[in-house]
Computed example of a mutant assay.
Amino acid sequence: MNNHIKNILLFLSCILMVPSTYAQKKKNYTDTAQGVSFDMVFVKGSTFKMGDKKGDLLLDNGINPSVPVHEVTIDGFFVGKFEVTQALWEAVMGENPSEMKMGNHPVEMVSWNDCQEFLKKLNTLTGKDYRLLTESEWEYVTRGGKKGVKMDVSSQNIEQRAWMTSNTENNQHQEVGTKAANELGIYDLQGNVWEWVNDWYSETSYKQAMQSNPQGIQNGTDKVYRGGSFMSEVLFCRPAYRNFDKPDVKMNFLGLRIARSL
């Protein structure tokens, strides 16, 4: 076989390898940190309608932070199948700060600032670049991602997917993954514990045109968290509901979920 043919075959083999390698990057996978494993789910990108045309609870100043409904385009990314557990947090940070300590329950009593320290250490241990979801990514995933664009059922039968006041008798969070998953196979996006996201909070951030992968305002005083908790009524577990607090606040119903860009 002469060199010309060899070069052609080598070129063809490289071309054939590209789709395989690219596809591999987009598969669900399991990672491990200090012996504790966690699952990541690939979410396909698409355009969806963010917000709630019925509106949200009006703030004292009369502003409704969940309107108007607006189109947002999200690129594909990876998201944690479960909320970050106490076991994973302890493996990474060396301690469990939770008020109600139960290993496979979601970690709580962690501030947004604490979450940043956790992510830095997790990335050092894994060699990857994990982060919090953006607010738009969180709502997109909770609404079922691309699968939920045509038929959004995230505001229906919430009790089947969420631990909240109406079905949590012992007034505490529950083991992750014990309620039904959503259309993407992701658990506890609604209920159990609220989840910090990356964005600074703005009452009027929805009053803007269609955009791709919005990151929210660049600075502020409060960080957003989403999803409701075991202490929430169904209203607060709706996918459009926005909550927020200072980035150093810690509460026993507030945790996190991780994400990773492609």
Rank of each mutant, 00 (worst) to 15 (best):
G228K: 08
L88R: 04
M1I: 07
K128I: 13
W194K: 06
D222A: 11
K147C: 03
A91R: 07
D129E: 15
R257H: 03
L12N: 11
N104R: 14
G62Q: 09
V84I: 04
I74S: 01
T47F: 11
N213D: 14
T178G: 00
T168D: 00
A181V: 01
Y201Q: 04
M100C: 06
A240V: 02
M1K: 11
Y29A: 03
M50H: 13
K49W: 15
E233P: 00
Q24I: 01
G220T: 07
W194A: 04
E71K: 11
Q34N: 15
F244Q: 10
E195W: 02
W163Y: 10
S202K: 03
S66I: 02
V234P: 01
V141C: 03
N157V: 00
M164N: 05
E203R: 06
L235H: 10
G62Y: 07
A23V: 00
T21S: 06
I74M: 01
N123A: 09
I63Q: 05
V79R: 03
Y140G: 04
S229T: 05
M151T: 10
K146S: 13
M102G: 12
D114T: 10
M251L: 11
S166W: 00
N113F: 12
D31M: 11
I63G: 00
G55P: 07
I258C: 06
K150N: 11
S261N: 14
E183H: 00
M109C: 14
V149P: 03
K54D: 15
E135G: 10
N167V: 00
D56I: 01
K146M: 02
G62V: 07
N7T: 14
F78H: 11
D152F: 04
F77K: 01
S212M: 13
S154K: 05
T124H: 13
E99M: 14
L133W: 06
K146Q: 11
V110L: 07
T134E: 07
T134N: 07
K27E: 12
T73F: 01
G220F: 13
T165Q: 08
